[in-house]
Design a protein around this nucleic acid. Structure first.
Lengths: 338, 338
DNA sequence: GCTCCAAGTTTGAGCGCTCAAACCACCCTA
DNA sequence: TAGGGTGGTTTGAGCGCTCAAACTTGGAGC
């Protein structure tokens, strides 16, 4: 069976007995069309199964109606699901705003990535980019601003407040604060922190999470001084670090961790150390299925919300390219074991 | 500073003193252009910083040069497909073949998804789709074939061999077979299987993995008959199931699991059961960081390779739309604990 | 010296849409 | 009754590319 030629603006117009432009107006500026005409055209659209051609629209408007986001090279995995959720959120929010989401493979380094983004934007494949996994040493934002590329970062401009750009981030300090208060409520009095090696130096996600713990613990005027340990983001390393912590005289009875990977290690160390007594309670970060499987509480990032806000910032900027840069912080929630 | 108008085919042509079409040929059909001219044009392209306009090309060729893939709604389970790796593989392989990867948010149900895919294809946003998470009851392939949409599934057409389509899948049976042989090599003689409740009924991923275990165990002529247990894909449920298994008179000394989630539960049960003796060895599936953290061997799916093959099948089909459907199985490998 | 051919190059047309400007009734005002 | 509006609609032009067909050459062949 022969498939009929797909309908175009012209064929729909002929079908409805109006002009091309009127059909276009019905779709893009309904208010410019008289109600009667509009109905007639809508019927024609339905009858002809008309679908607007995206490329034609892109060519005429010089807008791609798409944003690009990086597909990470395989990463440590436990928190890989977080990224999946972010992709879903972007795609969903994008669809609601007429934006498609384009994936690009993470290139070898930041320079190559900036070049690739430039390519995507200048060939008309995307209008803007969502930057993920930003850090203090990140060169991408500066380059993108320079080349005039519209973008929104998921992650704060750590230490680059002088070069403002749009960003959305999760307030890690609030998250660890929640964890501490949860533990306090349950009677814990020696609440330690297990973070990453670099925490406390340059501003970073780690510093932020640590600060939340420190402030919450400080505000509670507990027994001794706050205790902490650091470990690479690997369960085995974390297990070793926490074992040492638990062997100390002032061993903690609870541990707030910077990630679920660390929490997994901490959990094992706690179990091992507590042959007889009650094991130290561990709280994780990211609320991955691992934490749920182990019965650990964990701080959940509202990834979906963050993704929606990125899209909001971007669409806002499309409409007002010169408005000042905005940063948005969203609060995490604590997921308790069921 | 004023940004110069972006170069077009015409402006490059003028710059090089040739015609529009010659510039186009230099890019798309270099062999049709004399070497000297080609050099001159390439120089002009460089000097003018020319970037071809994707939308214009799409409009003229009626091809989107893009494929769509679904962004999953947040899923649970430690394992399952960690999609990031798949996305990255698709994006990478796509870039090598001039295909962009478009993400669409998972709709409420399969009917809505088919409608959305139809929309993407007919508006010229994508040329084809990669279907993920296929199952025996999946209605999507049938609908897509019917509407003539090009697609490739990541996952076999379980029980629908009469309606062939392009697919790529990981050979789960080979994976569990590897696990069994690994255990045999290490002296285990009573190797059980921990699968999902539905395994063995309709053909499915679970059946496939179970079969690999059964065949490998059968081929080894071991002590007693093969022992197995089933559990929902949750660590807690798996722990209960395995505890029962280990309490039996013919308790196994090793357990091959259908997922790392199950392996986590099995591991905990094994530790608990073995107060004194050596605990049963557990092997997982998917090689997630959890397995690595617990020191368990686990079957790793070559996700990246699978993604590349999906792109290969798709590009092949673009060139020969009528070639018969192809199915490709890729072999997993066993990741040993380090 | 003429035709014929292939390699190389140019021209014309069109993909389906949106913008801006032009047009057209028709009503209102002076 | 002529002179403005004002919603509603149409027209013309063009976005930047590719396809197919038409056009140039400089040999090779006779």
């Amino acid at each position: 069976m022969a498939v009929p030629d797909p309908a175009t603006l012209d064929s729909v117009a002929a079908h409805a007995g109006v002009s091309r432009q009127t059909v276009s107006n019905v779709l893009r500026h309904p208010d410019r069309v008289a109600a009667g005409t509009r109905e007639r055209v809508l019927t024609a659209i339905r009858e002809t199964r008309y679908r607007p051609s995206l490329p034609a629209r892109q060519l005429a408007t010089r807008r791609a109606h798409a944003i690009a986001v990086r597909a990470e090279r395989t990463q440590d995995g436990i928190s890989g699901l977080v990224l999946d959720a972010f992709y879903h959120g972007l795609a969903e929010a994008g669809q609601d705003n007429g934006l498609r989401v384009l994936l690009y493979a993470q290139p070898a380094d930041e320079a190559a990535e900036v070049a690739l983004i430039d390519e995507l934007v200048h060939t008309g494949a995307a209008d803007a980019v969502v930057l993920t996994a930003t850090s203090a040493a990140d060169e991408r934002p500066a380059h993108l601003r320079e080349s005039g590329t519209t973008f929104c970062a998921f992650g704060r401009p750590w230490g680059h407040d002088d070069e403002p750009h749009d960003w959305v981030d999760v307030d890690g300090a609030v998250g660890t604060g929640l964890a501490v208060r949860h533990l306090l409520d349950r009677g814990h009095r020696r609440i330690a922190y297990l973070g990453w090696p670099e925490d406390g130096a340059d501003p970073s996600t780690g510093t932020d999470r640590r600060r939340g713990w420190l402030e919450a613990v400080g505000a509670a005027s507990l027994d001794g001084p706050p205790v902490e340990a650091r470990s690479l983001n690997q369960a085995a390393a974390a297990e070793v670090a926490v074992a040492a912590l638990l062997a100390r005289a002032d061993a903690p009875d609870a541990i707030v961790c910077a990630s679920d990977t660390l929490a997994l290690g901490a959990h094992r160390a706690a179990l091992a150390a507590a042959r007889s007594a009650r094991p130290a309670t561990v709280v994780g970060f990211d609320a991955t299925p691992v934490a749920a499987a182990l019965g650990l509480a964990s701080v959940a990032q509202p990834i979906d919300q963050a993704a929606h806000l990125c899209i909001d910032l971007l669409t806002g900027r499309f409409e007002a390219p010169d408005r000042p840069a905005q940063g948005l912080l969203v609060a995490p929630v604590l997921h308790l074991p069921s």
